[in-house]
Design a protein around this nucleic acid. Sequence first.
DNA 1: CTGAAAGCGCTAACAC
DNA 2: GTGTTAGCGCTTTCAG
Lengths: 345, 345
Amino acid sequence: MTANALDPRPGRRITITDVARAAGVSVATVSKVINGRDGIADATSKRVLGIVRELGYESSLVATSMRRRRTQVVGVLVAEFEPFAVQLLRGVSTALQGTEYDILAYAGSVSAGEHIGWERRSLSRLGGTLIDGAIIVTPTVTLPESGVPVVAIDPHTGPVGPATVDTDNLGGARAATEHLIALGHRRIGHLRGRADLESAQLRERGYREALESAGLPYDPVLVADGGYRTADSTAAAAALLDLAVPPTAIFAANDLSAIEAMRVASERGMRIPDDLSVVGFDDIPEAVSCTPALTTVRQSLHEMGAAAVHMLLGIFDGRPAEHIRLPAELVVRGSTAGAAGAPGR
Amino acid sequence: MTANALDPRPGRRITITDVARAAGVSVATVSKVINGRDGIADATSKRVLGIVRELGYESSLVATSMRRRRTQVVGVLVAEFEPFAVQLLRGVSTALQGTEYDILAYAGSVSAGEHIGWERRSLSRLGGTLIDGAIIVTPTVTLPESGVPVVAIDPHTGPVGPATVDTDNLGGARAATEHLIALGHRRIGHLRGRADLESAQLRERGYREALESAGLPYDPVLVADGGYRTADSTAAAAALLDLAVPPTAIFAANDLSAIEAMRVASERGMRIPDDLSVVGFDDIPEAVSCTPALTTVRQSLHEMGAAAVHMLLGIFDGRPAEHIRLPAELVVRGSTAGAAGAPGR
DNA sequence: CTGAAAGCGCTAACAC
DNA sequence: GTGTTAGCGCTTTCAG
């Protein structure tokens, strides 16, 4: 069997040109057929569609988006696919179900040397062409007016600038700390989140406010930088637990560092919750699967994702950007118990 | 202040043309500077770089990928961002950490009318241009040779065709069934998965092999079609439990139907694990959060993602495609116990 | 009804 | 060293 006009060149994707040649029409005609433009003879249309099916042609998102205005794709820009981001992604995915939009999630800091500014970079690289709008997860810098509709989730700056969706971090942190206080803990440590995130600052503030309200002193020695990744938390947790008088409870700014704190404590022979109570923040899936299950502050990532989607679609429709704040809820599980010698109330 | 040559047109992304105009050089020169090609005067280079920074220019992924061969982006193609896919994504993300690759995850079936064939469509739309290679999560059809390096995770056809990564479904199912046998169960039911999935067939085979090895008879009456959705499982579970002599234990082909079986059993006043032991497969987050926690067979999604990444990078380097099978591990939780009147061993 | 031509933003030959 | 030219695959006027 020898190659004929119908055979696309091997090892290459099939382009609109291949279809045009096979159908014996111009590229423009194929384009019109595919996009349902009218002014095409019925016979031509049928023939072209036949070839399209036969060749398995599918238009290139890249080429199409270069030429057209809209792509029907919303972008979810993240620094990395960690639990927080992927959970959000699930919410976005469900909320977008049944709409005309596809989802393109992009982690663009992987190869970038600079960790700061990934969102600006990703947005510039994708915006205006590939995606019609973006949901940016935990941006670390203020986003420039780029002309691309944008919703920021849990932005480091708090509710300023473009549309934002975040959680009541302050209230959640207070609730977490008050829970520990109610259990009789008096020496409560805090594993601080990334200093450049407003959410982390608010969580620390909630911790301090709760202590203050209860008349407990704030001791800087009991606060350590947990960062936001497991590795960063190890040293911080160790620092807290290796104190001459270690805390009897720890409130961590996120679940990942809370879980790491539990691990570090176990390494030292401490038992959770008998020797140490731990509370996290986020309620990622691991929070319930770890042992013991983690008491934490739940922010409904699913709802945040959905809220972001609705706002973005609204912006597409010309409605104004808003700042939405969702409630946080304390979920008590097995990692917290009354302080030794103080049976709580 | 009036607009000058330095001002990009408002509301539009900044293009290489804007930079070229502002720097007073040609577009080609800017391109060379940005891509570090040599043969550019040091002074020119510095000036252009300055403008780039000043304007906040970032090259468009779309335009670049149209012209260039490689994009340094690996695609993860999914039908939808559900728990399984998202967990895999995390594995892929960690494995790609520190490499030169960015990750682009695409859910392209959202808007597509047809659910079947999403992977072919997504691959055609992105492959060859936007992404250098793809990891396809749970493809439902056999993928055509597209010229794009591809690794399929948990393909419905089993390890044939392109590179694949999957779990030891047979071994896992055997382990699950043997666990029930060891507990003293003799009348063990099976909730079968979707018949068109190779993984489901293997899980049933594992069940039968385990029975056989233990010298137990295979009774077709004890096997029902659980499908892959909760609703499908309801009737199947009911059929099993309403038998004149119901099974004392059930091995379900996935966690979702196992959990449904527990629910149906409770409806009938049976208690888990006292009156009925249940084992699932997958170890989804719900498996640990349901009551009682589900004994199940865990497949490490994280490891599967990482394995897929390594294989894909290997294919980029010209190494041959393989079929990798990861072990499955039985996780014993609260939903299984010794059969009544037979205390196991 | 259909096709030729222009151009989206960018890179790679090839000239100058 | 730098600019000119030609496209990547596609859509969109605008002529025929």
